[in-house]
Amino acid sequence: MMARTLFPRDLFAELDRLQRGMQQRIDMTPSIRGLGRDGFPAINVGGTPQSVELYAFAPGVDPASLDVQVEKGVLTIAGERKPDTPQPDAKATLHIEERFAGRFRRVVSLPDDVDAAAIEARYRNGVLHISIPRQQAAQPRRIQIQSGDQP
């Protein structure tokens, strides 16, 4: 589908517009922080009735350089990844350079019902797994129905 643009011969602009249009249709929940599809680290978030689970895919990071903070219901993951590629003056030719290097910082807003004091973080196989339990009061519980009849 070609739209009537001012300069219809600009194929690249047209492709760009089409891509954005498709992306907008795919992203059902536009967030003010963006989706960070190209961001580092990539983040997956899931939830159970008891907890919120966050997985940050940050391979090759020194665990000591990772900084996880929660403030006002916002979780921040920051750190630094040192480059593995050689310095430009070394006698080496760089053929492909795609991996992220440098400082990173990602921000995720948390649901209201989490207990930020009981947050747990673990770094394994290059994935930072953050588990935040939900507050006791917010967890589903079964309510016992008492019978008024006398036995």
Binding site: D84, K91, A92, T93, L94, H95, I96, E98, R99, F100
Partner: peptide
């Protein structure tokens, strides 16, 4: 994503 470099 990969990084590839070559030396002697």
């Amino acid at each position: 994503p990969v990084d590839v470099f070559e030396d002697a």
